[in-house]
């Protein structure tokens, strides 16, 4: 589904990703862990099509399509969803209104008929229940005045409405208390199925208690330095990242 091949990315001549390789197949959940500054957020942004990054080598394909040639909204149309680390506040723009425009934009991209207001509201109602988001947040301006936890829940709620094929969760666990963490985990688990893949970018192992990944990768110095199963995450939690640095510098 997602193939990242020898990806090299710089910002203002500073190399961030340094030949990264990653393959994600349908239905898989991959966790990408790594110390601060290892390039985790850069990876999420580049896959979603954020500007300001120079891609100096390598490529990203998604179901055979070259993602790098597509605009962010086209990537979304292909089924890429990014849950932001810092969901942005957009004053005056109603959350549900935006979501309807987004969903119909995606449907149009895929040649599907647009949903009318009634069907859309039915869908929203159903998803509201399953994600457990406060009704009150739906009709507020996007993320405006939301608490940290509310913002993250709103990201998961949007994900459940938009039903992506690949969801990237960029440090969705940061700044969450246990209840919110659990709610985010539940939301993601409900969406897990054999067609949908997840890339969970995180610094800590704790989110992985709720979302058990199939693969765990360690990102350091702009490349994946180690891959394994969930036990790797537990090891990192215990030993930190420093031992890996020593190991990579010797290899």
């Amino acid at each position: 589904m997602l193939k990242i091949n020898n990806l090299q990315v710089s910002i203002a001549d500073k190399r961030i990703l340094n030949g990264l390789n990653l393959t994600v197949k349908a239905g898989e959940v991959h966790a990408i862990m790594g110390p601060n500054g290892s390039g985790k957020s850069t990876l999420s942004h580049v896959v979603a099509g954020r500007e300001g990054y120079d891609i100096t080598a390598g490529g990203i394909t998604f179901n055979g399509k070259n993602l790098l040639e597509l605009a962010p909204e086209e990537r979304a149309g292909e089924g890429v969803f990014l849950a932001f680390q810092y969901p942005v506040e957009i004053p005056g723009v109603n959350n549900v209104y935006m979501l309807k425009a987004a969903l119909n934009g995606l449907r149009k991209y895929r040649g599907q008929p647009e949903l009318d207001a009634v069907d859309f509201l039915k869908l929203v109602k159903a998803k509201t229940k399953s994600v457990g988001i406060d009704d009150g947040l739906l009709n507020r301006p996007i993320n405006t005045g939301f608490s940290g936890g509310e913002k993250k829940r709103n990201e998961v709620f949007q994900m459940s409405v938009l039903e992506p094929r690949l969801a990237i969760l960029d440090e969705t666990d940061s700044g969450l208390d246990i209840d919110a963490l659990k709610a985010v985990g539940d939301g993601v688990n409900q969406l897990r199925n054999s067609d949908r893949s997840f890339v969970i970018v995180t610094h800590y192992q704790r989110l992985l208690d709720y979302i058990v990944p199939d693969f765990v990768h360690v990102l350091a110095g702009g490349r994946i330095v180690r891959s394994g199963d969930n036990s790797l995450a537990l090891e990192l939690e215990k030993r930190g990242y420093d031992w890996l640095k020593d190991e990579t510098s010797t290899t």
Binding site: E73, R75, F81, G105
Partner: peptide, 24 residues
């Protein structure tokens, strides 16, 4: 970028932001 990531075209995204700006 946030709106475009959700699948909204840049023109629609700008309209949305501008209308939000004027909502009051």
């Amino acid at each position: 970028f946030y709106l475009r990531q959700r699948g909204i075209s840049d023109e629609d995204a700008i309209n949305m932001i501008v209308n939000g700006f004027c909502r009051e």
